[in-house]
Design a protein around this nucleic acid. Sequence first.
DNA 1: GTCTATATTCTGATAGAC
DNA 2: GTCTATCAGAATATAGAC
Lengths: 169, 169
Amino acid sequence: MSATRDRLLDAFETLLIAHGPRAATLDAVAAAAEVSKGGLLYHFPSKAALAQGQRERLAALGEADAAAMRTAPEGAAEYYLRESMQSGGPLDRALVAAVRLAEESDGDATAVLEELRGHWYDALLAELGDPALAHVVQLVGDGMYYNAVTGVKDPAALDDALAVLARLR
Amino acid sequence: MSATRDRLLDAFETLLIAHGPRAATLDAVAAAAEVSKGGLLYHFPSKAALAQGQRERLAALGEADAAAMRTAPEGAAEYYLRESMQSGGPLDRALVAAVRLAEESDGDATAVLEELRGHWYDALLAELGDPALAHVVQLVGDGMYYNAVTGVKDPAALDDALAVLARLR
DNA sequence: GTCTATATTCTGATAGAC
DNA sequence: GTCTATCAGAATATAGAC
């Protein structure tokens, strides 16, 4: 993996997260990665290729995370909720960036998000044993993400979610 | 309220929902509303003015909805969860459009979303009486929205959420 | 209130030098 | 692998006619 290639993906994600798809232009990405536009287009021949590179990065990080859930000492559910709140890590960044791209109607990004959702649900179900409960825990995590994505602050979310979860099992 | 003005806001929301902020150009909005670009710019002198018009529409619809929650026969929580799943109504459209705009930075859209969130939470708390539970119900609703916004299908969400909610009270 | 025409800047992409 | 130069088309916005 080329270092420049990774810098370009980092810059692309940073712009998507901070200012949305409209700001994530080839010009802006190249400038943020301190490369010329020509340099960018050597690694990613088109904007679609850049988006695809981002999706591949997310898929790799997401699958690793689903595996980590299953062996987490605090259990898959708590690991998942904690992860949903946490902001700024590589997975979180890749996920928020992909959500921004998904809004551009690209069915490809939605497909990756949907597949990862399935992996996370399976890990939750393996721990909790209850499909409806696993589903609701996942929705709570989704809700935390939703707020993070829209910029809404909700600091008490994790504590309240864990408290209610404790009452349910 | 001018009819053309409303048609322009409708077209703006439709484009934001279907294809994201990049597709919601002045040209495209004007064409979808069957008005010329000059006609659009008479009603909304800039793109920022168009976005502001959309935020005002959302604020009005959202406040009316929070009031409706408090008098809903099935109770505020069920009303809220059902509303979060429902797709295509005026409030739903305005909300999804505002989320897309919120990503373009501009704290203004986030401020409206945050304020509406507060109204909905107050209505949930008034029915449920339990802050942590009200918070979790809201997060589940947020989660349903998150999936709707990213295009992920999750048809069983409402039934599972209502089943788990029944166990909690 | 709505239109057409135009100015200006931005955006994605190509070509070719180094 | 990276750069500069350049192009065609799109985007926001203005001016002025009707």
